[in-house]
């Protein structure tokens, strides 16, 4: 038994040490990263990151255009047009559904819209009677 207790204690000590060490390291890094110098460093990093991304994108666009291959922006344009078509289809579909409902033919409504549970539920305190 004393052996088991000492094992538990060692485990517990280690867990406490881990929690405390984590807290201290987080606090240390937060202090460092809360300084103006770190903010400037981060800003500089983002600047380089953005510039690099822009240069890569420009070069890639140029190369793909030379090879007569659709570029990322072409795909994005296409995707945008497809989204517009989807939206239009969606609104046509809902107009048809509304029209069908108006003339008394609900048609193919989604299964879920037919879920009509009774909306009469009361909180336990009110329905239980006597509970406050």
């Amino acid at each position: 038994m004393p052996e088991a207790n000492s094992q538990t204690d060692v485990g517990q000590l280690w867990r406490s040490w881990l929690t405390e060490t984590e807290r201290q390291w987080n606090s240390f890094f937060n202090d460092v990263m809360g300084t103006d110098s770190f903010g400037r460093f981060l800003g500089g990093y983002m600047e380089i990151y953005s510039t690099f991304q822009r240069l890569v994108a420009q070069n890639m666009e140029r190369s793909l255009s030379t090879l007569n291959v659709p570029s990322r922006s072409d795909i994005v344009d296409l995707s945008e047009r497809l989204s517009n078509v989807e939206d239009r289809l969606g609104s046509i579909e809902s107009s048809i559904r509304a029209l069908a409902e108006a003339v008394g033919h609900p048609g193919q409504t989604a299964e879920v819209t037919q879920l009509r549970p009774r909306r009469t539920r009361r909180p336990r305190a009110q329905s239980g009677g006597g509970q406050s």
Partner: peptide
Amino acid sequence: MGLLKRWSDRRWFDVDRLVDTL
């Protein structure tokens, strides 16, 4: 907002450049 605010300070964070690029 603590550090998140600090890191996005306008003195060193150019949000326009980031969004216009990415």
